[in-house]
């Protein structure tokens, strides 16, 4: 695995907007996970082409936050999802 992997949602995993509750969920076979705004923003950037650094850079700019802090949080968040096989790194 490279130090700047490209995350992607595996087959069968998708983001879904629950309009009734005005929230986003990550749907995987037989499971659903509730996302907050930041988690949603991160996963909306996961397109299978953008590297972790590119995603972090865009989010840091959007939220006006220090890039190292954003990169650390994004990495920790996605690593956790990779550990649960909800996201893949390529």
């Amino acid at each position: 695995m490279t130090t700047d992997p490209v995350p992607l949602l595996p087959r069968g995993t998708r983001l879904h907007q629950d309009r009734v509750r005005d929230t986003w969920v990550l749907l995987v076979p037989e499971r659903a996970l509730l996302l907050d705004e930041i988690g949603t923003a991160i996963l909306q950037e996961v397109d299978g082409r953008s590297s972790l650094a590119a995603i972090s850079c865009r989010l840091a700019e959007r939220y006006g936050a220090p890039e190292p802090d954003v990169a650390s949080d994004v990495r920790e968040f996605l690593d956790g999802l990779v550990g649960q096989r909800l996201v893949d790194y390529q």
Binding site: R31, L33, L35, I38, Y63, G64
Partner: peptide, 16 residues
Amino acid sequence: MAWKKPIIKNIACMNM
């Protein structure tokens, strides 16, 4: 909204 650590929660065994 300011940046903060993202949160993801399993939905308890709770509209498509």
